[in-house]
Design a protein around this nucleic acid. Structure first.
Length: 412
RNA sequence: GGGGGAGUGCCCGAGUGGUUAAAGGGGGCGGACUGUAAAUCCGUUGGCGUAGCCUACGCAGGUUCAAAUCCUGCCUCCCCCA
């Protein structure tokens, strides 16, 4: 295979699923040079350990890193333990709360652990940016900062918007892109990967490298994965995320609940299914040959398979069909202990039972749930909120809240 | 340093003396319809064994029969001028 063909082949994988590759021609030249000299490209992904758990949205850039690994390039995962102390202001409405060093360290560890599920950390470099950012003194910082202008930084629309709207912008926040850019200088990145919200920061790296006499990096912009409700990007705080460590069944269920029109983005961004196969499936759904539900099931099986293995994925699919398509009870229903002391002469009050089982956080909520027909014991809807039940009527029985929550009563 | 404005329930936001557990919207939760989809519709969304009571409108006091609403002090945030 000629170098030219191999370049084309690499470029195809590199640019699949991306929003933008900037600048494309330069990227091509870097790839070609790498092939000619045998020197792998240095591919950078910076992550902020601001939160302990990752979701499949975070796996999007990691998956792209994995592509580069497949092509034999050197990937560098930068844990922004230093930058996390400031918090990336990108797309934020307000200054982020400052984390303590302990929190950052703890998050960093779980981050690496979870990243291992997607990339091969054995041949990746994992580094912390405190390593080089910490030792800088004020003079160094000024020297680096002088290479940026305020006008330039204000181009970033989240800054200018907040400024315009009279919301505070901390001076230290201006330094965030500067630090991220400096990371690129230090590790001599050839390529940096990031989401659309990172475009400014990625470009800053390119500019700083040039200004400091290094070869500027190319940048790859990836789309942000939408949350399971189809609105806003995926985020734990918006409760529309699929956690990388979610149990298989839960992960499956969450994926089955996404709106139809984002199925294809999920396929492209978080599965390993090739784009030809995705297009084919999409076509069959569009002409009515395949029910979108089944396409979604395929998606769920694929994704759960990545994190839990194919066997568990199939089991989750079976379980799902049993419980939700056929209305049967789940195979495993978590038992919840209820102390016998809750019983009085007349028995236990349903409202109390529901609260004791953790299905409601107050009597009032339990009452409302019952009034709304959301509680069933052994498949039978509870109609009366004043109902009293004997120990025999509840021990070992299945209490269901809504359609998704099942618990088994265990008297102790 | 000077002047001005704002703090209401999970969030946004109305309310300027009683009929206000506080309009409306969002979100959440439940129900119907389904493919645990979306859209739509309905109900619900402080606590208490609940026709009653308690707690709640930044915090602390005060006026009043009665305060989210009026007064005083404090805290926090924002804007404008310097």
């Amino acid at each position: 295979m000629s170098v030219e063909e191999r370049v084309r082949e690499q470029m195809e994988l590199i640019s699949s699923g991306t929003v933008e590759v900037i600048p494309e021609g330069e990227m091509r030249r870097k790839v070609a040079r790498s092939l000619e000299t045998g020197r792998p490209l240095v591919v950078k992904l910076g992550v902020d350990p601001t939160r302990p758990d990752l979701h499949i949205g975070h796996s999007v850039p990691l998956t792209k890193l994995r592509h580069f690994q497949q092509l034999g390039h050197q990937v560098v995962l930068i844990i922004g333990d230093f930058t996390a102390l400031i918090g990336d202001p990108s797309m934020q409405d307000a200054t982020r709360p400052v984390l303590t060093e302990e929190e950052v360290e703890k998050n960093a560890r779980t981050y690496i652990e979870q990243a291992e599920r997607v990339i091969d950390t054995k041949c990746a470099r994992v580094v912390r940016n405190s390593q080089w950012l910490s030792p800088l003194d004020f003079k160094d910082v000024l020297e680096i900062a002088s290479r940026f202008t305020v006008a330039r930084i204000l181009e970033r629309d989240d800054f200018s918007r907040r400024y315009r709207e009279g919301k505070p912008v901390g001076l230290h926040e201006f330094l965030y892109p500067v630090m991220q850019a400096y990371d690129s200088v230090v590790i001599e990145a050839d390529i940096e990967i990031g989401g659309t919200d990172q475009k400014f920061n990625l470009l800053a790296g390119r500019n700083l490298q040039r200004s400091m006499g290094k070869e500027p990096q190319c940048i790859i912009i990836l789309p942000l994965l939408e949350g399971t409700n189809g609105v806003r990007k995926m985020s734990k705080s918006l409760e529309n995320d699929v956690g990388l460590t979610d149990p298989a069944g839960e992960m499956f269920g969450k994926l089955m609940s996404i709106p139809d029109d984002i199925i294809w983005d999920y396929f492209r961004l978080v599965t390993r299914v090739g784009s030809a196969a995705i297009e084919q499936l999409k076509g069959r759904v569009e002409n009515g040959e395949v029910n979108p539900r089944d396409a979604k099931e395929r998606l769920a099986v694929e994704v759960v398979g990545i994190y839990h293995g194919p066997k568990e994925a199939e089991e989750a699919a079976d379980e799902f069909r049993r419980v939700f398509s056929m209305g049967e009870l789940p195979g495993r229903i978590p038992p919840v202990e209820v102390p016998r002391s809750r019983f009085r002469a007349a028995g236990i009050w349903v409202v109390d039972l529901v609260v004791s089982l953790g299905l409601a956080s107050s009597n009032g909520e339990a009452r409302r749930l019952i009034a709304g027909g959301g509680i069933a014991i052994e498949g039978e809807k509870v109609e009366d909120a004043d109902l009293e039940l004997t120990p025999e009527q509840v021990d070992g029985k299945v209490v269901r809240k809504g359609k998704k929550t099942f618990v088994r009563v265990e008297l102790v």
